Computed example of a mutant assay.
Amino acid sequence: MSASKVYFTDLRTSFNENLPQKLERLIKTAGIGQIDFTNKYVAIKIHFGEPGNLAYLRPNYAAVVVKVIKELGGKPFLTDCNTLYVGGRKNALDHLDTAYVNGFSPFSTGCHVIIADGLKGTDEELVPVEGGTYVKEAKIGRAIMDADVFITLSHFKGHESTGFGGALKNIGMGCGSRAGKMEMHSAGKPYVKQELCVGCGRCVKICAHDAPHIVDRKSSIDQNKCVGCGRCIGVCPTDAVRAAEDESNDILNCKIAEYSKAVVSGRPQFHISLVIDVSPYCDCHAENDVPIVPDVGMFASFDPVALDQACVDAVNQQPVMPGSHLAEMPQEHHDHFTDSSPATNWKSCLEHAEKIGVGTREYELIKI
């Protein structure tokens, strides 16, 4: 496979061009106009930010992408899927509240927000993964699969499980339904944290397989009956039902790559990553720490693998930010993401994604 083109611009501005205008020039120069958007539904996959976290991308950047797509004749919507964990985005109503509070309204961005996997994270489509080693059918939010064109707008940052979070993380993990997220994170089934359980029985009512049972006012889940759909996680009022999260980080990364293939295969795609506010951990945290490196710039490509590789390389060329989490860690690996989260192996995702045909790690960086 020949090298993919990745377009880059730094964050310098002038009286003649601000950052939103520079982002518009970047994505147009990178070729977004080559896609036929005419009367097409366009999913723009983004992270709306967990309440309390301020490192997520400003809605101003989303507004630029929406504007360009509308000019090209498309019908864009901003989208994400519900989370598996406790927080402000575990169902569609809370998720929409979070998106609006963080500024992602139709008035600020120019398009609507659709939570792709529905009210409780169960509205999914089973998508075959050709050549998949770990996943045969990915469970993807239905609205994302209903779209004609798929676009990502990613905040590139560190991650405590995958090493970094970029385009592939935004696609693979982000587009998974609740059951899909569970499949990526866990080799097992959900369990009940007994000290949090109040014995309300909601998990019993929602389960179609008679897996949860209440004994002495505490729920427990029969692992032989459970199919791992995750519905019990969504209805638990005390967040007592949890995913096992017992999968190794390398396999987690490989599953993310395979889920990414399910999402992007067979339709037009385009990817944008902003390497700013490079926090050490995911935007799913209800807080964000000091950036581990200075801001770098904005990147765009038709190839999400090449895009992620280019962003990693750019971050690793930056000095360590004084006073950050990374500055407190031993600099043993000459790799900022490995030094920041030593138990991770970010290369496993890109290597597997390249192996199964999502894209290539070879890229030509074109600066504008």
Rank of each mutant, 00 (worst) to 15 (best):
S2E: 15
V6T: 11
N16Q: 14
L23I: 00
K28Y: 01
T29N: 11
T29E: 14
A30M: 11
G31W: 09
G33R: 03
Y41I: 03
F48W: 02
E50T: 07
A55M: 04
A55K: 10
A55Q: 07
N60Q: 14
Y61S: 09
V64I: 12
V66P: 12
V68Q: 03
I69G: 10
E71G: 14
G73H: 07
L78N: 12
D80A: 14
V86Y: 13
G88W: 11
G88D: 12
N91L: 08
L96D: 02
F104D: 03
F107S: 04
F107P: 00
H112D: 15
I114W: 02
V129W: 10
E130V: 13
V135A: 10
K139Y: 11
G141E: 09
G141C: 06
R142K: 15
D146T: 03
D146L: 12
D148G: 06
T152H: 10
T152Y: 07
F156C: 09
G165D: 13
L168Q: 04
I171Y: 12
G172T: 05
G180H: 05
E183Y: 05
M184A: 12
K193A: 03
E195D: 14
L196M: 08
C197K: 05
V204K: 07
K205Y: 00
V215K: 15
V215F: 13
S219Q: 06
S219F: 00
R231M: 13
G234T: 15
G234P: 00
D239G: 02
A240W: 03
R242S: 06
A243N: 08
A244G: 00
E245R: 11
E247T: 03
D250Y: 00
E258Y: 07
S260I: 01
S260E: 02
K261H: 08
A262C: 04
F270Q: 03
I272G: 01
S273V: 03
L274K: 04
V275T: 10
S279I: 01
A286S: 13
A286I: 05
E287T: 10
P291I: 01
P294I: 05
G297I: 09
S301D: 09
F302Q: 11
D303N: 12
A314F: 04
Q318H: 04
V320R: 12
G323N: 12
E328A: 15
E328H: 14
D335R: 05
P342V: 06
A343H: 13
T344W: 06
W346I: 12
S348Q: 07
H352S: 08
T360W: 02
R361E: 10
E362A: 12
Y363Q: 10
E364H: 15
